[in-house]
Every structure is written in structure tokens, then in C-alpha cells.
């Protein structure tokens, strides 16, 4: 008798022996989705971002004041009454302004994070994977962008952008924030491409860009997701600096960045001018972070608590599975 299984369902035997209900072969995307939905903090993060969007765009329908309409009877009012978050020194309603600012800043933050990280992933992975001339040209470009003072370039180019849509912002901000990540991604790709599973994919005839998409990028997901969430916060703030050059968000229009910038000077004396927009930024970035953490754990099979089933059925097996794998 030759038995070929090496995993009899045995007490105290293999960690993968805990029986599972027969399931339809779940592909990676479905599995990741299921694992993501299991994570409460990540879902909360997602819900908060959606709520912020809803509030930003729906609040003009019910808010008592408009962002551009000063209340000449109330200068620098603390929060209360019809001015829920107080007023500015020329009587503008802080709540309305923050909501107006959110409309743009949410989109700017999320898009910049997404675009810059994707660009970094594609350029870095391509440079690292293909090597040779591709690597040299792409890295030359990266180094060039790194040494150029981005603000100077934008200042020089700003006349061309004057009066354009603020969405140009997004491209400019993303265009100047991906280079360092691309360099890190390239370095990681150099080690990943020598892994045997990448070689295996190559030897089975997989196309290079599919190898990058299927094997290399998912294995750097932790780095990319952290990078994206950090960039979201940074983009909202650095947009203030760009506004200084006179394009994009111009008064009386506001963004979260400009509100924070103008509120900074009165942070001690009239705290609501600073803390309200800053608080919204913190809530926004925090929920993006929670969402990113959840996504990262969902993508990473070794993350703790990813196998809820095992945990509930047999405590004391999950960790062994993880450690046993490394042994």
C-alpha cells in the first residue's frame, strides 16, 4: 500500500488538517475581499471616508450658511448657535468652509495617493525587473526629477496653468511625489525577481508585465499601501504651498489645506479656526490609514488573525501554522 497523502486527519497533527467546508475554488480577488470584510477597523475607515464625502457634498443642502457668504453680525464667534463651528474674522461660517474645503481635499488626497503610488510601482518594478537600458533610462528620469526643485518648476510653469481646473493640482502633486518610492520599489524588485516563484512564472511562459502584476507588486503591497496612505495626508497639506503660486484653489474658494494654513496663526487665540479643519484632516487621514491597514492584512496571508475560522475552531493552531511555515 502506498499512500501519498501526508496529512491524515490526526489529533495534534498537521495544522492544515482542521476540516473546512467544501467551497468553490475562490480566486485571489474573492479571497482578499472576504478577508478584508472580516476586519472591523478597516470597514470603519471605509465608512468614515464615505461619510466625509457625503457630508462634504450634501451639507450645502441643509447647512444654515454658505461658505462664501459672510455673517456681518458675527466676527470670530466661537462655535454655537447657527454657526456650528464658529466664524472667521470676516464672519465666514467655519462649518460651511470646512465642508467646501473637504470637497476638494478629499479628492485631491485620495487621487494623489493613488496616482503617485501606482506610478512608483509601475516605474520602479519595470526598472527593477527588466534591468539594462530600461532601468538606466527610468532611473535617470527619477534622479532628474529628484534633483529638480519641484516648487521652482511649478512656479515657472504656473502661468500656463492659471485658471485651469484644480484637478491639474492632482497631477502636479502626484508627479512630484513618486520618485523616492519608485527607487525603493526598484530595490525590492531586484530581490523579488530572483525568487524562485518569479523564475517559475518565467519558465512557464508568463509575460513580463503579467509577472510584475501578479507576483511582484502583490508582494510589495505592504510598502505600497503604507506609502499611499502617507501620501494622502501629505498631498492635502502641500496643496497649500501650491496655492501660494496662484493657481488652483483661490480665495474666496477654500480647501482644507488653505483653511489650516490660515488658521495656524490663531491656533491659540481662536482655536476653532485651526482645530476644526485640522481635526477633519486627522479624521480623514486616520480612516484612510485604517482602510490601508485592513487592505494590507487582507493581502498578506501571514497577517495575524487572517484565519478567523481556525481561531474559532481550534485555538492554538493559528500561530503554529505561521511558525511551522517558517521552520
Amino acid at each position: 500500500m502506498v499512500t501519498l497523502t501526508e496529512d491524515g486527519a490526526t489529533p495534534g497533527g498537521s495544522p492544515v488538517d482542521t476540516s473546512v467546508a467544501a467551497e468553490r475554488s475562490p480566486s485571489r480577488s474573492r479571497l482578499v475581499l472576504r478577508r478584508f470584510l472580516r476586519r472591523k477597523p478597516a470597514l470603519i475607515g471605509l465608512v468614515v471616508v464615505v461619510l466625509l464625502y457625503a457630508a462634504a457634498f450634501l451639507s450645502p443642502l441643509f447647512a444654515p450658511w454658505d461658505y462664501a457668504e459672510p455673517d456681518y453680525t458675527a466676527f470670530l464667534q466661537p462655535p454655537g448657535g447657527t454657526h456650528w463651528f464658529g466664524t472667521t474674522k470676516i464672519g465666514e461660517d467655519v462649518f460651511a468652509q470646512v465642508m467646501r474645503g473637504l470637497q476638494k481635499s478629499l479628492t485631491i488626497g485620495l487621487l494623489v495617493g493613488l496616482i503617485s503610488t501606482s506610478l512608483a510601482a509601475v516605474v520602479g518594478a519595470a526598472a527593477g525587473y527588466f534591468g539594462g537600458w530600461t532601468d538606466r533610462v527610468l532611473m535617470w528620469l527619477v534622479d532628474l526629477l529628484l534633483v529638480l526643485p519641484s516648487f521652482l518648476v511649478i512656479a515657472v510653469a504656473s502661468p500656463a496653468f492659471k485658471g485651469q481646473s484644480w484637478l491639474i493640482f492632482v497631477l502636479l502633486l502626484a508627479g512630484f511625489s513618486w520618485m523616492i518610492t519608485a527607487r525603493i520599489v526598484r530595490g525590492m524588485t531586484l530581490t523579488l525577481r530572483e525568487r524562485e516563484y518569479v523564475k517559475a512564472a518565467r519558465f512557464m511562459g508568463q509575460a513580463p508585465f503579467r509577472i510584475i502584476a501578479k507576483h511582484i507588486v502583490p508582494n510589495m503591497a505592504s510598502l505600497l499601501i503604507i506609502d499611499a496612505t502617507v501620501t494622502v495626508g501629505a498631498a492635502v497639506l502641500s496643496e497649500t504651498g501650491l496655492s501660494f503660486f496662484g493657481f488652483g484653489v483661490q480665495p474666496p474658494d477654500v480647501s482644507l489645506g488653505t483653511l489650516i494654513a490660515s488658521g495656524t496663526e490663531s491656533a491659540i487665540t481662536y482655536p476653532w479656526l485651526f482645530y476644526v479643519p485640522a481635526g477633519f484632516l486627522v479624521v480623514f487621514v486616520l480612516s484612510v490609514n485604517l482602510f490601508g491597514d485592513g487592505l494590507r492584512d487582507a493581502l498578506d496571508p501571514s497577517a495575524a488573525g487572517s484565519r478567523k475560522r481556525d481561531k474559532k475552531v481550534k485555538k492554538g493552531k493559528t500561530g503554529k501554522t505561521g511558525t511551522g511555515a517558517q521552520a
Binding site: E6, D7, A22, E23, P26, P301, R307, T321, A325
Partner: peptide, 14 residues
């Protein structure tokens, strides 16, 4: 049933 599991959940021989 093992199709939905990740490689880390298996032993070396498996």
C-alpha cells in the same frame, strides 16, 4: 478543499 489556502499554511512536504 485546500485550493483556497495560502502556501504558508502548508508544511514543507506539502
Amino acid at each position: 478543499e485546500h485550493v483556497g489556502r495560502y502556501p504558508a499554511e502548508f508544511s514543507g512536504g506539502q
